[in-house]
C-alpha cells in the first residue's frame, strides 16, 4: 500500500484535519465575500456589544465586527504561518542538508549555531526582532522563522546522515554526481516524509506564536484582523465582553486541532509500520 492509500484509509482524524484545513484555506481566500462588514469599520457607539443580528458574534474594541475579524483572521494566520513555515523549512533544509552532507567543521559550526538559538528563549528573540524592525506581517514571519528553521535543520541533518551511507547514494557518488546533485536528487526526496510531518506540526505552532507575540504587543500592525490580536484585546475585556476572546479562541483552537490531527495521520501514513488496523 502506498502512503497515499494508507492516508485515505486513516480514520476520522485525517478526515477532520483535512476538512479543517480546507475550511481554513477557503475562509482565508474568500473572507471579503463571507464577511458581513469591512474589517476596518469602526463604530464607537457599539463598542463591546454582545451578539446581535447585525453582528452575529458581537463587536470588539472600537466596535469592530468580531465575525468579520475572525473570518479575515484566517487570512492573516494563513499568510503568517504559511510563509513562516516555508521560510523556516527552506533555510533549515538547506543548512541541515549541507551540515549533514559536508560533516566536519561545517557541520560542527552550524549545529553549534542551532544550539545557541535553541537555548535562547524563542519568544524573546521574536520580541527583539519585532522591536528592532517594527510591526508588520513580514517581520512577524521573519521573527518566527528566525528560530523556526532549527527544527528542520536538525531533522534534515539526521536524515542525510543516515541516508548518505546507503548504497544508491554511494553509487551516485561513485558515478561522479556532485554534492549538490546528490543532496537534491537523492537525499532530500527521501527525507521529505518526516519533513512534511514536521511542517504540518509547525503550522499550528506558528499560528499560536503569532498570537503570543500579539499578547506582548508586538504582533501584526494595529487594526490587522488577526486571531492573536483579537484574543489579546478580548482577554482585557473578559469580564465585560467575554465573546471577544471566545470566538477567535475557538477558531484558533479548531485550526490548531485540525492540523495536529492531520499531522498525526500523515505521520502514521508515512511510517510503513503504522499499518492501519
Amino acid at each position: 500500500m502506498s502512503a497515499a492509500q494508507r492516508f485515505r484509509l486513516n480514520s476520522w482524524g485525517a478526515r477532520f484535519g483535512l476538512a479543517v484545513a480546507c475550511a481554513w484555506v477557503f475562509t482565508a481566500l474568500f473572507a471579503p465575500w463571507l464577511s458581513p462588514h469591512a474589517p476596518d469599520a469602526i463604530d464607537l457607539t457599539r463598542e463591546l456589544s454582545p451578539p446581535t443580528s447585525g453582528h452575529p458574534l458581537g463587536t470588539g474594541e472600537n466596535g469592530i465586527d468580531v465575525l468579520t475579524h475572525v473570518l479575515y483572521g484566517a487570512r492573516v494566520s494563513l499568510e503568517v504561518s504559511f510563509f513562516a513555515v516555508v521560510l523556516s523549512a527552506a533555510v533549515g533544509i538547506t543548512l541541515g542538508g549541507i551540515a549533514g552532507y559536508a560533516g566536519g567543521l561545517v557541520d560542527e559550526a552550524l549545529m553549534r549555531g542551532v544550539d545557541v538559538l535553541l537555548a535562547f528563549p524563542g519568544i524573546l528573540l521574536a520580541l527583539f526582532i519585532t522591536a528592532v524592525l517594527g510591526p508588520s506581517l513580514a517581520n512577524v514571519v521573519f521573527a518566527l522563522s528566525f528560530t523556526g528553521w532549527t527544527g528542520y535543520a536538525r531533522l534534515t541533518r539526521g536524515q542525510v546522515l543516515t541516508l548518505r551511507e546507503r548504497d544508491y547514494v554511494q553509487a551516485a557518488r561513485a558515478l561522479g554526481s556532485g554534492p549538490g546533485r546528490i543532496l537534491a536528487r537523492h537525499l532530500l526526496p527521501n527525507a521529505a516524509g518526516p519533513l512534511l510531518v514536521q511542517a504540518t506540526f509547525a503550522l499550528p505552532g506558528a499560528i499560536v506564536a503569532e498570537a503570543s507575540l500579539s499578547f506582548l504587543g508586538l504582533g501584526v500592525p494595529p487594526g490587522t484582523p488577526s486571531w492573536g490580536a483579537l484574543v489579546d484585546q478580548g482577554t482585557q475585556y473578559l469580564l465585560v465582553a467575554p465573546h471577544v476572546a471566545l470566538f477567535p479562541g475557538i477558531a484558533l483552537a479548531v485550526t490548531v486541532l485540525g492540523f495536529n490531527l492531520l499531522g498525526d495521520a500523515l505521520r502514521d501514513a508515512m511510517d510503513p509500520r503504522h499499518e492501519g488496523r
Binding site: 500592525p221 494595529p222 484585546q233
Partner: peptide, 24 residues
C-alpha cells in the same frame, strides 16, 4: 493603539490617509 485607529478613521474621512505603526 485603539485610539490611533479611531483617529485614523476620522482623518480618512477628510482625505488624510494614515498608517498606524505600534512600536515597543
Amino acid at each position: 493603539r485603539a485610539v490611533a485607529l479611531v483617529l485614523k478613521e476620522q482623518l480618512a474621512k477628510g482625505g488624510i490617509a494614515v498608517e498606524v505603526r505600534a512600536l515597543e
